[in-house]
Structure formats: C-alpha cells, structure tokens
C-alpha cells in the first residue's frame, strides 16, 4: 500500500523494448509536494520512465502506484481518469500548431469541463500570467521562441490544476535566460500550486538547484539517490563521473571496439 507521504511508488520495475532490457528492478519513490529529479546519461530511457508513469507504456513486470492506483493494472478508461491528475511537459512542447496559444491552453479545459467561455478565458489568462505569456495569448506556436513555446506548454499542462507534473528535459536547447526562467517557474509553480514535480534532465547544476530529492539512473537501474547535498558528497565513481562531467571513467569515452593498432594496420 502506498504511503500517503508519497504520490508515486515504483517497485521492482522491469521494462524491455523487444529483447533489449531498458530497466531492471527499478525502485523509486516520489514524495508529495516536492520536486524530484531523475537524472542520468542520454539514451538510458529517462523519458521512457515518464511514459511508464503516465501509462503510455506497459512494463514487463513490477508496480507503479500513483495516488492509490496501480497504473500497470488500469484499463484504458481508468488510465484516462488517472491522467486527469497528471500534467506532462514534453521536450518539444507539443503545442497544437493549428491553434493559438490561448486555444492551446483552453483546449484541455474545454474538453474536460462544461465551464462557460468567460470563465475559461479567466483561467487561461491566469495560467498565462503565471508563465509570463499573457501578452502572447493571440500568437501561434510558430511565432514563439523555443523557450516561450515551452512556457506556453507548461501553462497548458497546469490548466486543469493537476496533482503531479512531469517535465521531460525542460532545459534542453534553451538559452541561459530561458533556462533561468524555466528553473524558477518549476520551483515557484510547485510551491505556489501545491504540486508534485518530477524533472527528468541531465543538466546537473540546474537540477540540483531546484530539486528536493534526486535519483540517478544508469545501467538500467537506480545507481544513487538522495538530496542534492548528499549526492555532491557521493563516493561512487560512476556518480562522480556523471556529476562532474568527466569524459572518461566507469562510462568509457571509447565505444567498445577491437584493438586500435590492429585495426589501423590491418588493411584487409
């Protein structure tokens, strides 16, 4: 049974894509009301973990409990009900290109509620104000910069006041100003709206500056977890290599290959 202190508890999670194992025996808890970060090198399936939590992928085995429901056991209808309590900010923003910023944010409200247009307008403007884009309500996604598009998408994902919001690489490809804005927004929205946030990223400094608790995922499992302060003093070589961005270490610089000299001088 899930503890009331945690909104998500993942236990003994295994996930494979065709025959390739992505996760083996992942155990992870997301405390309610906190910002939890999941970090790890590129390509280890951090986004996959968010999709597993959102029920878009089914694990091979294990349980993912979200607010009392085991996501892995939910049927399609239950899953859609559970997802109303979640928001997700995709890496690309995933705004609907044929709609204005205003309509993008109004979209989930119009779909899930019967509120009048005047109330929807007020809610949308409040959400846009929270991300600093009230003035851009009439623009289309193609007219926004990358950072603005991500903030607009953030406003859309909090449109229905979810309990949990998941950020998929929110800092990727952002200039320093946009990055600073997004870092601040994640923390402020979490505290002001009483949300729980999961941030998936490999931008170490930005993540450590806002996270309350951090999991580092590598080699198909969780290799370390703790508060940012605890992780800064972690002695594991793998964690030190990742946190300090060292090019060589337990994760080798060279992709596995034959002997260099043999390869160079063997013309055949």
């Amino acid at each position: 049974m899930i503890s009331s202190d945690n909104i998500i508890e993942i236990s003994n999670l295994h996930f494979s894509r065709e025959e390739r194992a992505i996760y083996q025996d992942i155990n992870l808890k997301v405390p309610r009301g906190k910002v939890t970060a999941i970090m790890g090198p590129s390509g280890i399936g951090k986004t996959t973990l968010l999709r597993l939590i959102g029920g878009q992928l089914k694990p091979s085995s294990g349980a993912i409990e979200f607010d009392g429901d085991d996501i892995t056991q939910c049927n399609r209808k239950q899953l859609y009900k559970v997802r109303r309590k979640m928001g997700m900010l995709f890496q690309s923003g995933a705004l609907f290109t044929e709609m204005s910023v205003f309509d993008n944010i109004a979209f989930p409200i119009r779909e899930h509620t019967d509120l009048s247009e005047s109330i929807i307008r007020k809610i949308v403007l409040m959400k846009l104000e929270a991300v600093g884009l009230r003035g851009a309500a009439k623009l289309f996604p193609s007219e926004l910069s990358g950072g603005m598009a991500r903030r607009a998408a953030l406003a859309r994902s909090i449109a229905l006041d979810p309990e949990l919001i998941m950020y998929d690489e929110p800092f990727a490809g952002q200039d320093p100003i946009s990055m600073g804005v997004i870092v601040r927004l994640i923390r402020e929205l979490n505290d002001a709206l009483g949300l729980t946030s999961i941030v998936v990223s490999h931008d170490v400094e930005e993540v450590l500056s806002i996270a309350d608790y951090v999991y580092i995922v590598a080699n198909k499992t969780v290799i370390a977890h703790g508060t940012p302060e605890q992780l800064r003093h972690e002695s594991s070589e793998q964690v030190i290599q990742f946190m300090q961005g060292k090019p060589d270490g337990p994760v080798p610089f060279h992709f596995p290959s034959d002997d260099y000299k043999k390869d160079i001088f063997n013309n055949a």
Binding site: M88, F90, S92, A94, P108, L160
Partner: peptide, 14 residues
C-alpha cells in the same frame, strides 16, 4: 513525431 498525440493521451483525451 512532435509528440502531439502523446500529449493528447496525457491530457486524458483519446
């Protein structure tokens, strides 16, 4: 490819 279908699913819209 630009995750619009996934974002619909996550907004609980089929």
């Amino acid at each position: 490819s630009n995750e619009q279908l996934s974002s619909l699913e996550m907004m609980a819209i089929d």
